[in-house]
Write a protein that binds this DNA or RNA. Structure first.
Length: 444
RNA sequence: GGAGGCGUCGCCUAGUCCGGUCUAUGGCGCCGCACUGCUAAUGCGGUUUGGGUCUUAACACCCAUCGCGAGUUCAAAUCUCGCCGCCUCCGCCA
């Protein structure tokens, strides 16, 4: 959620943000009313409760006096006094109970509306929908396969040639959009994992292996139960969720905590499997492993001060680019438009790698500045001197395995279907320079 | 899965049996002040978090908060029920 003070002092800022996102503006006015009602109800309860406590504090000592009463007359007098107070308190108790219920109801209404308001967009984000992104930079030159004299194979053809990717058996065992990485394919993932973790460690990230199943509170706190809910797997019997990214367990790691501002930024590089239902993407990217239900990913996640968030966002993008450049992939950077940010992000940059057989750039990383939005929802704060206040969180993909593998196979392929290994990756593959098909005898 | 124990405002801890001056005790740590060549020691004061009133701000005051939720009661850290977590033992298990 965003700073509640903004709702009271500058609601137009929220309206404008909602408008730019193409989301409800009316909900802001509903919330203003609900917020006022919530405070009024709480105040009413507080007053009644105070009266009740004042009365209660008189009864205790009186009963003590009653026990020690010296004679019958003073005992009778104390007795009458106690009974009068208790009768008074009794009617008050009913009022307190009713006021409490009303306050809880008003709070629930306001809190529900808060969940429907997305983060304030950064005013530099291009306004519009999915297609209205701005290209910030193109890096590297796509290979000219025509000039090289051969038709490039797509990643699945190469993967099958190398016996590295098996989608047929993936579908047999688990259904469509599941796959096996096999042989050199599996080794390639381990190499990428190690390269990514080495880079992350060098940049001050703490490696983490996270749970892939989380409580509803973690899912909601990171903002994935809003519009994105349809893409989340839910374990109904246990009321748990499969995460779509380790951003969720990494963000929730410090939930309900107060961190020392002097210790920030804290950077984690999380490794986990990621699960996505891909609802509504029927017919899209059905071939190969560009869009799958389960994959592994190294995710960067940062807790920092709100002041430092924008600079950190730039660093995350830089580190993503370093990784993609180490793999010698042509790519471009886009500034994602307001309508495509997701509810938590104020600003988002994607890296898209060139995919030769599609003649297009396709998303391989995404980095978001979620400012204080997730921190407020997850109650993560920082102690700065004697002040306690929300901090900022940011996330960025370092290496989403399937898409990186797609880009490597397609961009570094040779006419015979073998694949040249980028220099940076070779040490992690036992020095191998080329990925080639295994001996026929070893194929199944 | 079964049995038992435990959960108090950073950490440790008193309080829970038997409800009311609990407006939660004490120690450690931390912050401020005093004293003192410096440090240390000592003394005094402060130190959960959230919401609200007032407000330039500070202060002050009110409400909530003793794992979470519900209940009993005029009144709940304390009694009752449910849930969660941790520990020990048993069972199962990579």
């Amino acid at each position: 959620m965003i700073d509640p003070a903004i709702l009271r002092t500058d609601p137009d800022r929220i309206r404008e943000s909602q408008r730019r996102r193409g989301e409800s503006v009316e909900v802001v006015d509903e919330l203003i009313a609900a917020d006022a009602a919530k405070r009024a109800a709480q105040q009413h309860f507080d007053e009644l409760r105070n009266q009740q406590k004042v009365l209660g504090r008189q009864i205790g000592p009186l009963q003590g006096a009653l026990k020690k009463a010296a004679d019958d007359t003073s005992r009778a007098r104390a007795q009458a006094e106690v009974e009068a107070l208790m009768a008074q308190a009794s009617t008050l108790a009913d009022d307190v109970k009713a006021a409490d219920a009303a306050a809880i109801e008003a709070a629930a209404l306001a809190d529900g509306l808060w969940l429907r308001i997305s983060n304030l967009v950064n005013l530099d984000s291009p306004v519009g929908g999915e297609a209205d992104f701005v290209v910030l930079e193109e890096v590297g030159t796509p290979r000219d396969f025509a000039a090289e004299g051969f038709e490039p194979r797509d990643h699945l053809d190469i993967g099958e040639l190398l016996d590295a990717i098996d989608t047929v058996r993936g579908a047999k065992v688990s259904g469509s959009r599941f796959f096996y990485l096999k042989g050199i394919g599996a080794q390639l993932e381990f190499a990428l994992l190690n390269l990514a973790m080495q880079q992350a460690s060098a940049n001050g990230f703490i490696p983490m292996i996270t749970p892939a199943i989380v409580l509803p509170s973690a899912m909601e706190g990171t903002g994935f139960l809003g519009q994105a809910a349809e893409n989340v797997y839910r374990l109904d019997d246990d009321d748990l969720y499969l995460v779509g990214t380790s951003e969720v367990p990494l963000a929730a790691y410090h939930s309900d905590e107060i961190l020392d501002a002097a210790a920030l930024p804290i950077r984690y590089a999380g490794w986990s499997s990621c699960f996505r239902r891909e609802a509504g993407s029927y017919g899209k990217d059905t071939r190969g492993i560009i869009r799958v239900h389960q994959f592994d990913k190294v995710e960067m996640f940062v807790f920092t001060t709100p002041d430092a968030a924008e600079a950190e966002h730039a660093r995350l993008l830089r580190w993503e680019r370093d990784f993609v450049e180490a793999l010698e992939l042509p790519y471009r950077v886009i500034d994602v438009a307001t309508g495509d940010l997701g509810s938590s992000a104020a600003r988002k940059f994607d890296i898209e790698a060139w995919i030769p057989t599609q003649g297009a750039y396709r998303e391989i990383t995404s980095t978001s500045n979620t400012t204080e939005f997730q921190a407020r929802r997850l109650r993560i704060r920082m102690r700065d001197g004697d002040r306690v206040q929300p901090l900022a969180t940011l996330n960025g993909t370092l290496c989403a395995m399937p898409r990186i593998i797609v880009a490597i196979l397609e961009n570094h392929q040779q006419p015979d279907g073998s694949v040249v290994v980028p220099q940076a990756l070779r040490p992690f593959l036992g020095g191998r320079a080329v990925l080639t098909a295994p001996e026929p005898a070893t194929r199944a």
